[in-house]
Simulated scan of single mutants.
Amino acid sequence: MVRLSVPTIPQAILSSATSSKTISPAAAVERIAEFLAPGNVAVITGAGVSVDSGIRAYRGEKGIYLNPNYKPIFYHELMDESPKGFGFRQRYWLRGYLGYKPVLDALPNPTHYALAALQYKSFVPRLITQNVDGLHHKALAGIWDKHTMQHHVLELHGSLHKVHCKYGHVTDRNTFQHWLSTANPQWKEYADELEATGQKPRTNPDGDVQLEGVSYDDFVVPVCPTCLLEGRQNSVHKPELIFFGESIQPDVKDRSFRDIESSSRLFLIGTTLATFSAFRLLKHALELQIPVLHLNVGPTRADGLPGIEKIELESGKVLKDVVRAVLGSKADEDPVVRKMLVSGVVRPPRDDE
């Protein structure tokens, strides 16, 4: 199994980054549509895809990983049963408690709906997302049932929307949030105040918020009620996402490789490929001589690799037009596609959040 490490782009790539050849949105639409038109395309999405939904990317101009002082919590720290580990869980769950609602309330943007249309029309039978926000699923809600979505969308790094304790008892995240509210009325009051005043803490893609000058010592992490019924005290919980230092489950890893192997082309969107779990899928595609097109703004770990065509544009500016170019008149004739192509919010995070 491969463990998820803190995402990095080699300094040599960052140092040698140059301005890419400019391309007009119209030319980009034509090229992307030409690439997608044969179908059987695998898509890998990253945090950049969700920026228009109000969720900050890890990298980019204001990404959290550009802050050298940022220290994420590692898997072994979160699961440590010593008092030090309990402190890590207090920090994680307080920040996660405040950061989950902005992610829960986020709505799909035009990129999510454009990709959903391409999935619905079978041009993109396999989508692999590094995101844990569930927005690809929201864009397909009402079109596909849960089973169909799971078949066509692979969440490579898991999901924020479920929590499990160390003994495997699974809880819906909304229920867990209620447990946290009940155990921490003072923070419930603070969260209600934020919502009432329209304030949003600066939230990262994994639901973590940035808090300054806050003590975590009094935050209560609730005991698992199922464990209590089984005669044990246990407050070690984690969301069903992959933490730094944690291994991706073998079935997820195996499926991600199969999804690449079953595809004729690979389209990368909004990802720097800084995490090895995604970068190795690109490497696998290149080994299989699968054509690769990369739509992203800024340096990426893949820059300079032979066999990759890169377009530097924001996906939200072109993907709906790409769908229209691929489908032609069918884009207007199909009521499902027609609705998708007029759906989607554009609410990028404010600088003052």
Rank of each mutant, 00 (worst) to 15 (best):
W144N: 05
W144E: 10
H147V: 14
H147L: 14
T148I: 11
T148D: 09
T148S: 14
M149H: 03
Q150A: 07
H151N: 11
H151M: 08
H151S: 14
H152K: 09
L156G: 01
S159L: 15
L160C: 11
L160Q: 07
L160Y: 05
H161D: 12
H161E: 12
K162W: 12
V163M: 09
C165T: 02
C165S: 04
C165G: 01
Y167M: 13
G168D: 09
V170D: 11
V170H: 11
V170R: 10
T171L: 15
T171Y: 11
T175C: 11
T175E: 15
F176E: 00
Q177G: 07
T182V: 14
A183I: 10
N184A: 02
N184Y: 01
P185I: 02
P185M: 07
Q186G: 12
W187S: 02
E189S: 15
Y190L: 14
Y190D: 07
Y190K: 13
D192Q: 06
E193M: 10
E193V: 06
L194R: 04
E195V: 00
A196V: 08
A196W: 05
A196Y: 06
Q199F: 10
K200S: 11
P201I: 06
R202S: 13
R202V: 10
N204L: 15
P205Y: 08
D206H: 00
G207K: 00
G207P: 03
G207R: 00
D208H: 07
V209F: 01
Q210K: 11
L211S: 06
E212W: 12
V214C: 01
V214L: 04
V214G: 01
S215R: 02
S215Y: 03
Y216G: 02
Y216H: 07
D217E: 10
D218L: 11
F219N: 01
